[in-house]
Design a protein around this nucleic acid. Structure first.
Lengths: 151, 151
DNA sequence: CTTCATGCAAACCCTTTGCACGTCG
DNA sequence: CGACGTGCAAAGGGTTTGCATGAAG
């Protein structure tokens, strides 16, 4: 079968990362981690805040932003920029990769592709650049949304 | 020699694009175009506003945003997202391409690379994606900043 | 206990919008 | 003239911060 998409179903791994990095595992962070784990695709801070409100759990917006920032620094989640200019996050593995974002279901899959990196390095070289970093974001329809009938 | 970087030195081409698209060539737009032409690399709306203020010319912020939006639609400039999350713009040719941003001097060069696109399409395919769009941004040191002595 | 984290609300961006006035063609 | 564009100021989001209170280790 198709590889599973963002297989993290509970917040435990995120909390673990916090713990290992020496941060406290508090209730609000537990809740945020759980909310993130529940996301099927990219999400914004506002999405989490809305979910929190919908779930009757009270977490301050500030805490959400602070936790997202923290997890971002620890590379447990990554911030991506949608074409609309919105800032969104996706949870991901802490290895170098890129994201393919499904415009249909908003899920993301990690792209780890040596050839792609080679092509990038080559393109940079041709432009006379010493590439330090790069970001790639793909937008399209994922396998599942392609496979099923188009509504 | 190395290809010149963003060779637009005056605002005329931008105005021309506006004119051809049926928009009026007004004084404020002329000023914004000139400001953009003066930029050596990526710039934000705030940068232009600051330059305008410094140059003693009064343009409303709203006009700057509106003009940037307009030029963006006409593909005379393109919006890019810096790793910091800031929204910046770069002037560019209206063909499909990507940007390499120099982390030193902030200038950008357009990247048009068929192989790179092929690699992207291939990576998408492997992930089961039907790619609709993508964005790539390279960050590094440009030829000039590499060539000259590092300060 | 002592430090770290939270919540709240105010403060701060950045960007958009409504509207009366000005100006381009 | 008549439509289009501008400026201003206010509104609107999103994100950050200061500070007193509360929980974690």
């Amino acid at each position: 079968m198709r590889p599973s998409i963002n297989p993290r179903r509970d917040g435990a791994p995120l909390l673990e990362i916090l713990g290992r990095a020496g941060y406290r595992q508090t209730e609000p962070r537990r809740l945020v981690a759980a909310l993130i784990a529940r996301q099927t695709g990219h999400f914004t801070a506002a999405d989490l805040a809305r979910s929190a409100r919908a779930g009757e759990i009270g977490i301050g917006r500030a805490t959400i932003f602070r936790t997202l920032e923290l997890l971002g620094e620890l590379e447990a989640i990554e911030r991506i920029d949608l074409p609309t200019g919105e800032h969104a996050y996706v949870s991901c593995e802490p290895v170098h990769h890129h994201h393919a974002v499904c415009t249909e279901c908003h899920r993301t899959v990690d792209i780890v592709d040596a050839e792609l990196h080679a092509a990038i390095r080559e393109a940079a070289r041709r432009a006379g650049f010493t590439a330090e970093a790069h970001r790639i974001e793909l937008y399209g329809r994922c396998a599942e949304c392609n496979g099923s009938a188009t509504p």
